[in-house]
Write a protein that binds this DNA or RNA. Sequence first.
DNA 1: CTGAAAGCGCTTACAG
DNA 2: CTGAAAGCGCTTACAG
Lengths: 340, 340
Amino acid sequence: MATIGDVAKLAGVAKSTVSAVINGGKYVRPETRDRVIQAIVELDFTVNRGARALATSKTLTLGLLVQFNEAEFAPAMNTYVVALSDAAHKNNYRILLLPDRDDTAAIRQVKAERVVDGLILMNVLEDDPRIDALHATKIPAVLLGMPSEDTGFDAVDLNFSGAAKALVERVESMGVSRVALIGWPENVYESKATYAVLFRESVRETAQQLQLELVEHYVSVNPAEARSALQEIFSRADFDAAIFHNDAAVAMMPQLLSSTPIPRENIVSLHSSELARMFAIPFFAVESEPDVIADSAVTTLITRIENRDKPITRKLFAPEWIVGTEAASSTAHRTGCAHP
Amino acid sequence: MATIGDVAKLAGVAKSTVSAVINGGKYVRPETRDRVIQAIVELDFTVNRGARALATSKTLTLGLLVQFNEAEFAPAMNTYVVALSDAAHKNNYRILLLPDRDDTAAIRQVKAERVVDGLILMNVLEDDPRIDALHATKIPAVLLGMPSEDTGFDAVDLNFSGAAKALVERVESMGVSRVALIGWPENVYESKATYAVLFRESVRETAQQLQLELVEHYVSVNPAEARSALQEIFSRADFDAAIFHNDAAVAMMPQLLSSTPIPRENIVSLHSSELARMFAIPFFAVESEPDVIADSAVTTLITRIENRDKPITRKLFAPEWIVGTEAASSTAHRTGCAHP
DNA sequence: CTGAAAGCGCTTACAG
DNA sequence: CTGAAAGCGCTTACAG
């Protein structure tokens, strides 16, 4: 593989001149530049990123801290991983996968090994222990999540409070008086995942403002458990409308629609667009484009890497409405007894 | 951040001695070694991976070529990404995400930038164009997939032929005579994804051997389209048993069971265990642990990196049976008319 | 406008 | 058993 030295020799210039034409910066006489470019093409030269990183102390690599929480829902995570990798490449960065089973240890190590320029944290919790590790190591980072108090780090997320408010208002507008929140398993709220906590708080507040009676049910993400829990909840149905915030649960609902008095129109949900794409979920729902959020997270982080003293930013993205697809909604009516 | 020079100075030894205690190799007098370790701890020193990579020309990084094929099913991919990252870390390697929209260009570049030691290819096709690029760049690689002719690269995959055979034999043992293959969209077979092609071939062969009549249906992975296609196929039901090889389609089936004469026991499937985990799919099915395959892929690749002259290996993993969960299967009977 | 030199933080022969 | 030196492939002041 050709090095910058080979190129310099072939072009009859110094290495620093080759470097100048590659990286811009200094002016190089067009004539010289052409010779250099010639040589680069001829030798099929590409910069060795590792060597450059050593010289500049910039790796152009972003670490993605992925947690393997059984309570999370895999399809949604995958969308983010892919979207983040894409966004990084668009900006000439790469994504390194960093499993952090032991939270803070992984962060310290990655910093010490100088293997990434910054870190992306998914599924941020209120009082996330990883944030302390981040502070200790002084590594640039962006949070996918929105802790309530200012953590000293840039944060990007869907506006979960706004989404919840919109959903409650929607069911209220349909004239119901008792609404159910079908939430994630309790331990998700106990861990204080910001998306869960913010959504629930906003549901509660909005329900109170609109004088709606609110009941809360927390459902497993294990499909079998979710199914029997939902069967129980929806056959009793001590409510007129339901707001889902649990991908596994909402994905199960089409199968149960026929055995509940709650009409499909009174069921709304906040779920990932990946889920919507994979399973025709026939309910009114809100979600935002993971691509948009991933893009914002990456550019925010890069900006931070390039300028550590900028003021901290917190970006909230507005949710979008998804309407259950035609095919899906027509099926919803049919589910049940075609062959009695 | 401390460097090896700082450690050397503090311990009163040369850098090469510090290097020796870190990397093993030469014998260092215990007394000296202790002083060095002292210093390392005191300064909280960690090797700069980039610098080491430059000196050794080993990056300890594996590139994962992830394609964003809409026809693929995201949850399954996510499982592999996570499992591969885990396996890599266990072996002191890291995973770099490499989106390859333009196949071969990405491979050339990554090689030229010397940013990874080897490559993992997911979703390998028969006559995969990326394999030529791999040959051209002479970069170590492992294929997740099993092309029929010897490609010159190590390959690892689930035994799709064996799985298909087992499934056909199972339905045959239930005394049926006409079986349907519910496959992926046609373009998956046209692209010659090895998992699809091998499975279908083996279904055809085994059916012929067992003198079963075989019909084939190809179903979209778009949920709405899949649903209406399946409704049509299963209400007509010109077969007694069905073999699914399409995650999106099989995930939809529980909703349609009540409207088909085909009994649940006569439906079998090959689907990802991630899907099984997320959605209680009440059918007999085969699949293997992605962890096992990911582990094998990673260790195979590392072995190849360390010794390029070893003979090529092709490893096939036996499928495992998954039985629809209790809750799921009991529900399968109930789906339908609880509230007539 | 271009080149020679030093340096980024390691490892690896090679002396001693 | 340990140290001094060269080198991995770049970039970046600094001369000229």
